[in-house]
């Protein structure tokens, strides 16, 4: 069963990664930034799995599974921070967080 080349997958992965980074750079809500980081990680995962297919050994897939777990950990901590901040009535906008200035 022949589908598209690996390069198609990689191009898709790159676009995903770029979309995610744009989200991180341009959005100000920490929640959406976290979601965008997830998209970046997914892009990397897609690349890993596509390359695993190319080389025919599963190292890339194992890596991708580990990345999922790590992503989940980051999300836990990130969401924990966001909830704590909202309880303390801090702005949920990274541009308006200006307590820390010189």
């Amino acid at each position: 069963m022949h589908g598209p080349d690996i390069s198609w997958y990689i191009a898709l992965a790159v676009i995903l990664f770029a979309t995610g980074s744009l989200g991180v750079l341009l959005r100000r809500s920490p929640l959406i930034i976290l979601l965008s980081v997830e998209i970046m990680l997914n892009g990397a995962n897609l690349a890993l799995i596509a390359f695993a297919r190319r080389f025919g050994h599963e190292d890339g897939q194992v890596f991708a599974v580990a990345v999922m777990a790590i992503a989940a950990s980051e999300v836990v901590v990130g969401l924990g921070l966001i909830v704590a901040m909202s309880r303390r009535n801090l702005e949920l906008d990274v541009d308006k967080l200006r307590t820390l200035r010189g």
């Binding site: 580990a66 950990s73 901590v77």
Partner: peptide, 23 residues
Amino acid sequence: AFEVTSIVLLVAAVGGVVLGHHA
């Protein structure tokens, strides 16, 4: 890698607890 992944998850869980305390 497997072991370390599980450790990281555990650390994150501790983090969740600590930050929950925060609130």
